[in-house]
C-alpha cells in the first residue's frame, strides 16, 4: 500500500472518528456538572474506613483487585524488558569509561540523592493521607538512585546498585501484596478485603487498615521495578557493544 493511499485511509478514518467523538461529546454531562454518583459512594466508603486519601482508598481498598492486576502488568512489563534486553552472544560487555563532570553538578547529585530518596519515602508513607501513594513514591525513589548516574557516571551507580537485590525486591513487593490479600482470606473475609486490621484514628499514619501496608508493598515493587528497568536500558546504551563492528561502536 503506497504511502499516499495510506494517508487517504488515515484522513478518512480520522475524520470519521472526529465526527463520532464530537457527536458523543455533545451528549456527555457538562464539564463541571454536579452528578457524580460513584464519587459520593467512594468518599463515604473511604471515610467509613478512616482513610483520608479517598483515591488511595479506591486504589488499595475498594478496587484492590484491579491494582493487583495493574501490579502484574508492571511485573510482566519489567520481565519482558529484562528478557528482551539481555546480552546476546555476539555482544560483549565493555566497562564504562569514567566521565568528567563539573564539581558543582557532582556535589548537587550527592546532596540531592538522599533528599530525593527521603521525598520518595515520604510520598509512599503518607499515601493514604496526603496526595501521593506507592506508585508515585516508588518512581521518585527509583529516580533518586539514578541521580548518581546523572551526577557521576555509570560505574559509580553500579557500585551501589546490585541489580539482583532489586529483582528480588520487585518480586517481594508483588508477593507481599498477594500475601496481604490471602491474609484477608485467612482472616475469614474475602481476598484483599480491608477487614483485617483496625482502622485506627482518622488522618494518622496507622489509619486505613491494610491500605498503608498495600501502599508500602506497591511502593517497594514500583521502586525496584523501575530500577531494574533502568538498569537494563543503561546496560544496553552504555555498556553492551556488538562484537563484529566494534570499530563502529566506538564513535557515536
Amino acid at each position: 500500500m503506497s504511502r499516499r493511499m495510506r494517508m487517504w485511509v488515515l484522513a478518512t478514518g480520522g475524520l470519521a472518528v472526529a465526527v463520532l467523538l464530537v457527536a458523543g461529546y455533545a451528549r456527555l454531562p457538562h464539564f463541571g456538572g454536579a452528578v457524580h454518583p460513584y464519587g459520593e459512594r467512594a468518599v463515604s466508603a473511604a471515610l467509613a474506613r478512616h482513610t483520608a486519601n479517598v483515591i488511595s482508598s479506591v486504589n488499595f481498598d475498594l478496587r484492590a483487585f484491579d491494582t493487583l492486576g495493574e501490579e502484574t502488568i508492571l511485573f510482566g512489563a519489567v520481565l519482558g524488558t529484562v528478557v528482551l534486553l539481555r546480552q546476546t552472544r555476539d555482544e560483549r560487555e565493555v566497562p564504562p569509561a569514567p566521565a568528567e563532570v563539573a564539581p558543582p553538578v557532582r556535589r548537587y547529585a550527592l546532596i540531592m540523592l538522599p533528599v530525593a530518596l527521603l521525598t520518595g519515602l515520604y510520598v509512599v508513607a503518607h499515601g493514604q493521607l496526603s496526595p501521593g501513594g506507592g506508585f508515585q513514591g516508588g518512581v521518585v525513589v527509583a529516580t533518586a538512585l539514578h541521580l548518581l548516574y546523572i551526577g557521576a557516571d555509570y560505574r559509580a551507580l553500579e557500585k551501589i546498585r546490585p541489580v539482583g537485590t532489586y529483582e528480588v525486591g520487585d518480586a517481594a513487593g508483588e508477593a507481599a501484596y498477594l500475601v496481604l490479600g490471602v491474609a484477608g482470606l485467612l482472616g475469614g473475609s474475602a481476598f484483599l478485603a480491608n477487614t483485617l486490621l483496625p482502622y485506627g484514628t482518622f488522618n494518622t499514619l496507622a489509619s486505613g487498615g491494610t491500605v498503608p501496608l498495600l501502599n508500602a508493598a506497591v511502593g517497594m515493587e514500583v521502586a525496584c521495578a523501575v530500577v531494574v528497568l533502568l538498569a537494563r536500558f543503561l546496560d544496553q546504551a552504555v555498556e553492551i557493544e556488538e562484537d563484529n563492528g566494534s570499530a563502529m561502536g566506538k564513535e557515536s
Partner: peptide, 19 residues
C-alpha cells in the same frame, strides 16, 4: 468534592503507560 474514582483510574493509567 470531585470524583475520586476517575482519579484512581487515571493514576494507574499513568504508571502503566510509562512501563
Amino acid at each position: 468534592l470531585v470524583d475520586p474514582v476517575v482519579q484512581a483510574l487515571a493514576l494507574t493509567d499513568v504508571v502503566v503507560g510509562a512501563t
